[in-house]
Design a protein around this nucleic acid. Structure first.
Lengths: 373, 373
DNA sequence: GGGATTTGTTTAGTGGTTGAATTATTTGAC
DNA sequence: GTCAAATAATTCAACCACTAAACAAATCCC
């Protein structure tokens, strides 16, 4: 049988790539670069950069702003910046004890934020989805009133999610095979909006990436009722073949240890989950250290970020984890593993969700220009 | 500060990409596709495919062969196939009890193969490298006598290797900070040849990929004196940030278990290394199952391939491993993990090494054409 | 005020793809 | 045996995106 390994590339793809290159370079730059500066740093000619910038300005992704402070002679530059009036991302979250929605614009700032504290465990999936749909509708209307165009939405859920937006199982919510993407797509105020669904830890990991910038590699570990992890490899979230990566909570720590609700024995969750954490912090730290050592030995991940319930007790956990890492990571002597606390608090997953939407626009501005036209 | 996220794309890159697309499509096809068939499957026009094929034929990467069997009316097609007289890869291996070299041509067939059984532990690194350099020199001369052009060499070593070709530590060889790439580059018969060095399990994993085709995701685990693993994610070897991924041998299985030579306790190696394997197979299987469950929980890897010393006892290991996987993998109920035995035997690493060279040519034919001109 | 300097635009040129027309070669029908 | 239909491959004009170099614009500094 004959299959193509990739897709062909034509002139239009060149344009699309270079549009993204220019847009991302502006996005990643702290100041307000000029066309000439962009040309210098991207390797494109000034003529080409001008043409690309014209398209991006016309399409409402970039705006001309006051130039950065002058240095020496020459015609003054025009500064360029991401617009704060263009596309926006809608980030949603359903968690055990709250619902949330936020709107993030292209520059990455949160423009609107709604949180509703309420225990979701007694609610059935349709109720939770309707409630978060209500928050989403309010957020979208508020965004449009600001002149923003919501480009898409993403929902964070504490469970296993397939890439079609189907929640296979969310134990702490009591969900099983819930088509969350379809339910949100049916909300009238969200009509026509692409809706993604993803695991909460995965999205929180992406939220962390938003702050870091660049193409880092790290593991984000979030202590909640369960324990989830999001793995970012070279700036990209690694979701696994079926989207089920990051289940560090069920990595075996003590093979004959405490029975876990998953049926196995000695899962990390039993020693470093939220309940265990409230009891015995040194035990939690040691168990975490053992499981994280496995990750580093397997993947050579240089940075580990602790979030969720781990963030407030980071100081108490640190030593215990690092002791195990030093003992059990084969390459610990060659290069130490960096242990950090998460930058965001409870909003991490929701912001990460919104960020997937604006990341999509940043990575494919040509697609957005086609849509906007 | 201003940095570019990627490199610009110009027409030349389009050409390079499409050359690779056509070449790889021919490589991955079982029959001998015509230009028209390539156009249909790649999505390029026949005119473009013709132009690309002309370049590849002129550059000595493709040859016209007898067409595939006819069907119905019409002008007969000209079949296309990878040449067996073009670039070749030189695969080298230094292991505890043997040295080896082989030449693999663009079609993936082994054209020459040299193996020298000799215990390398008493030898110092320079001696081992000189000996394998000798094999390499013979292999290169034999290849050139066949009309092949050796495009590069790669060496497999059982140890931690940085991407500059420096062997940081190879415990079973007694090596520490050996610049293997430089040593091989100094062999007169290898003058001017790019030489890569990589971990043995990584390269063996790539060798497995050569047979599979496509873009699979799997973990290759090789039982030797130690235990190494090569992780292939979406058809790409994942080396880790510093190239030190795959150290599954030092994943903790029993936190307070047997002391390991690495200084920790309860490493997999102590329960499923070659020595342990000769003693207690069920113990080895259970330990492997526990460690592999961690990998699957973390990475959602659907396939595990067992090679090296595990291959001959695969039947005896299988049940014990699968039992643990069923118990300990959270998603085992949603989709079972496939456990396979490696396709290649002892040659896996050496062939994988040679394959990295021909893969580089297949992925960047434009670069090869420039070199060959 | 004038030269130096830097930014941004214009214009001709190049390379690579597309699409339509053309040429080449076979099968099968009458 | 010849001709129509069918399929393969090539040729050629058009188009599109980028480059390079010249040019125009705007400022600094002597």
């Amino acid at each position: 049988m004959l299959t193509a390994s990739t897709t062909p590339v034509r002139q239009a793809s060149v344009r699309a790539h270079n549009l993204a290159l220019v847009l991302q370079t502006v996005a990643n730059s702290a100041d307000r670069p000029s066309r000439a500066a962009l040309a210098a740093v991207t390797g494109l000619t000034r003529a080409t950069v001008s043409a690309l910038v014209d398209d991006l300005v016309a399409g409402g992704l970039l705006v001309e702003v006051a130039p950065p402070p002058r240095t020496g002679a020459g015609r003054p530059a025009a500064g360029l910046a991401l617009t704060s009036a263009g596309p926006a991302g809608l980030g949603l979250e359903i968690n055990v004890d709250y619902l949330a929605a936020c709107v993030v614009d292209l520059t990455g700032t949160v423009r609107h934020r709604y949180v509703e504290h309420a225990d979701q465990r007694p609610a059935d999936p349709a109720q939770s989805l309707a409630a978060v749909g209500g928050l989403a509708a309010r957020a979208r209307l508020a965004a449009e009133a600001d002149g923003l165009t919501v480009a898409g939405a993403a929902l964070a859920v504490p469970g296993l999610v397939t890439d079609a937006g189907l929640v296979r199982v969310a134990p702490n919510l009591g969900w099983q095979d819930v088509d969350a993407a379809a339910a949100l797509g049916a909300v009238p105020e969200l009509a026509g909006l692409p809706v993604g669904v993803d695991n909460e830890a995965n999205l929180a990991a992406l939220g962390e990436l938003l702050v870091t910038g660049g193409k880092p590699t790290y593991l984000y570990v979030s202590g909640e009722i369960g324990i989830g992890a999001g793995l970012v490899l070279g700036g990209e979230l690694y979701r696994g073949v079926r989207g089920w990566s990051g289940e560090i909570g069920h990595v075996t720590v003590y093979p004959d240890g405490r029975p876990c609700r998953c049926g196995a024995r000695g899962c990390l969750e039993q020693y470093a989950g939220q309940e265990a954490l409230e009891g015995d912090v040194p035990l939690a730290a040691a168990a975490l250290g053992i499981a994280l050592s496995a990750v580093v030995n397997l993947l050579d991940v240089p940075v580990i970020v602790l979030g969720g319930a781990y963030a407030p007790v980071f100081g108490a956990l640190r030593d215990g984890i690092e002791t195990e890492l030093r003992r059990r990571v084969l390459t610990a002597g060659l290069a130490p593993v960096e242990l950090r606390v998460a930058r965001f608090g409870a909003d991490a997953a929701m912001r990460g969700a919104a960020d997937t939407v604006i990341r999509a626009v940043r990575e494919d501005p040509a697609g957005w220009l086609r849509r906007a036209r």
